[in-house]
């Protein structure tokens, strides 16, 4: 079954590459690159060594933005889910800010962090923080608000209260949905990092895309896109793995 799905995936990729080859047959550097030109471009950027620096730069920014978003978003979301009064006050605000694309914050980010030593890094991290923050808060809020009242009631019945209630009931009950939110947020942050790096920074995969475009090396642009896809996939698989390990240890199988 595993092999079967792998072969099926290969079939999809092969069909895509075939169509791509047909559409770009005979193109030169500067036109839309063909699969072969992309592969060769990938070899070239990998050999140059800047690719690795750019990967590290992008991953580093995402890691910071995402971690900060989780560190603030999870506790805030749980608090909003737990206290209906607080939710009534704060949630409409959160939900109104959420649809704003993080990229729209860029001008403000530049003003806020401009002039500091790491100004461009900080603005990129700020955008990534925003992009990850809203899905995390939203998931944590609804995870906590939708905890089965039966669990809370029986905890009260058995005199389990305060921090003990939080640690043994609220957190584990909310965990599956919080983890799903984290995974979603990481995916969004990875999408946003490329856009964020197209302005104002001089490292990262987004920068590499813009830089290659300015050099009219479309094959390098496509090569960077392949790398972005591969790392995105890796991050998502990693998160899925973390998710299922944590949940399996708790005996909660996801159906």
């Amino acid at each position: 079954m595993k092999l079967r799905s792998f072969l099926n995936a290969c079939l999809g990729f092969a069909a895509f590459v075939g169509l791509w080859q047909l559409a770009t047959h005979g193109n030169k550097v500067g036109d839309l690159p063909s699969p072969w030109m992309t592969a060769r471009g990938l070899g070239q950027v990998a050999a140059q060594g800047v690719l690795w620096q750019n990967i590290i730069a992008s991953v580093f920014r995402v890691a910071w933005g995402f971690s900060l978003a989780a560190a603030i978003g999870i506790p805030l979301g749980i608090a909003l889910g737990w206290y209906p009064r607080l939710r009534d006050v704060v949630n409409p605000l959160v939900q109104s800010l959420r649809p704003i694309s993080p990229i729209a914050w860029l001008p403000f980010a530049v003003i806020m962090f401009g002039g500091t030593a790491l100004s461009s890094d900080l603005s990129a991290i700020f955008l990534l923080f925003l992009s990850a923050f809203f899905p995390i808060v939203t998931a944590s809020t609804s995870a906590t608000a939708s905890i089965d009242q039966k669990y809370i009631r029986s905890a009260r019945n058995f005199g389990v209260e305060g921090f003990d209630l939080f640690r043994r009931v609220v957190l584990p009950a909310a965990l599956p949905q919080v983890l799903t939110g984290l995974r979603l947020a990481l995916g969004i942050a990875w999408v946003v990092v490329v856009a964020a790096e197209m302005l104002g920074v001089e490292t990262g995969l987004g920068y590499q895309v813009m830089d290659s475009r300015n050099a009219l090396r479309m094959d390098h642009v496509a090569a960077a896109m392949v790398v972005i896809a591969a790392i995105g996939l890796l991050l998502d698989t990693g998160m899925a793995r973390v998710e299922s390990t944590i949940l399996a240890r708790r005996g909660v199988r996801r159906g």
């Binding site: 039966k150 019945n157 005199g159």
Partner: peptide, 26 residues
């Protein structure tokens, strides 16, 4: 109060705890 305990229709035992931890819950 623990002096009077409620048993629910759909068991209210906690899915993230083992049988041992559930019975020791209260």
């Amino acid at each position: 109060s623990r002096k009077r305990v409620f048993v629910f229709q759909e068991p209210g035992i906690l899915p993230w705890f083992s049988v041992w931890d559930n019975i020791g819950f209260g």
